[in-house]
């Protein structure tokens, strides 16, 4: 019989050792970064002045600019976000199906699909936009493809995880009835992941509205291009107006997504 320990510890000594190892590495990383990062202190002294200068130049926002400079670009931004999301669904679903271990019983295929999804997510949408601007030239096409390729990793990964979490019961019942793979996916998996799927898509659309607003900074269409032009010309009142419009559209998108989620789920 084991003696009852005199002192109670929440974690075993091995667990505590693992935790302290991590604490140590985190502190080491922070100290190393803080000591070596290049910061030019001279720039810091006049930071408040610079900020004040910027804000006074931005006030008041140029409301008159909205009808001729911003409205169309804003609509274009929303089109880029929506089309990019739609396109990403079609590319992401096959990879999501391949990445789910219970649906595709081949570790090699799972691994390859996951590699594709991770690569898609690792490259930021701005970097994707740079690539597509190089290929298709500046404009909304590059932006839409950038949004789509960045979203593939997000949608595919989450759909794959949702598929892996589906209960086995209905699937086994279909298998016992002799259903083909297609029938199993359509009648067994799809109804179970449908709510999760729509909420993933809506969430991604919400994120894409935010992201497509800055894609124009590298020339990929939308309101970012108007912003880049205004910044280059130091028209800070226009920049303020553009930022205000982005802010409003982001909030409207968030409200719309919340309302739609409530109806769908």
């Amino acid at each position: 019989m084991n003696a009852v320990p005199r002192e109670w510890h929440r974690y075993t000594s091995g667990q505590r050792l693992a935790r302290f190892t991590f604490y140590f590495f985190i502190v080491a990383a922070v100290v190393a970064s803080a000591r070596t990062v290049e910061i030019i202190p001279e720039f810091l002294y006049d930071a408040p002045e610079q900020m004040k200068d910027l804000l006074t130049r931005m006030w008041p926002p140029e409301f008159r600019y909205y009808p001729d400079g911003i409205h169309d670009a804003l609509i274009e931004t929303i089109h880029i976000a929506s089309l990019g999301t739609l396109l990403s669904i079609f590319i992401a679903l096959p990879f999501g199906l391949l990445a789910a271990r219970n649906l595709t019983p081949s570790p090699t295929l799972n691994y390859l699909a996951k590699l594709v999804l991770v690569s898609s997510r690792s490259v930021n949408s701005l970097v994707w936009a740079l690539l597509f601007v190089g290929i298709f030239g500046p404009g909304a096409l590059a932006g839409t493809l950038a949004i789509a390729f960045r979203s593939v990793g997000f949608v595919g990964k989450l759909v794959g995880e949702a598929l892996e979490e589906t209960p086995r019961g209905p699937i086994e019942a279909l298998e016992a009835a002799g259903a083909s793979t297609g029938q199993r996916v359509w009648y067994g998996y799809w109804p179970q992941i449908r709510p999760a799927f729509w909420s993933i898509v809506l969430l991604r659309w919400d994120i894409n509205v935010r992201e497509s607003a800055v894609l124009g900074l590298v020339g990929a269409g939308g309101i970012g291009m108007a912003m880049q032009a205004a910044i280059d010309l130091f028209q800070w009142e226009r920049v303020a107006m553009i930022l205000l419009s982005i802010f409003i559209i982001v909030i409207v998108a968030e409200i719309a997504v919340t309302a739609l989620r409530k109806r769908i789920l």
């Binding site: 990062v37 290049e38 910061i39 030019i40 810091l44 930071a47 610079q50 900020m51 701005l126």
Partner: peptide
Amino acid sequence: RSLHPVIVAIFFVKAVGFGAL
């Protein structure tokens, strides 16, 4: 939350200059 990091970065580049800070 509602400001994209790149937009915030533009402002800070103006305020504290180019670089990691």
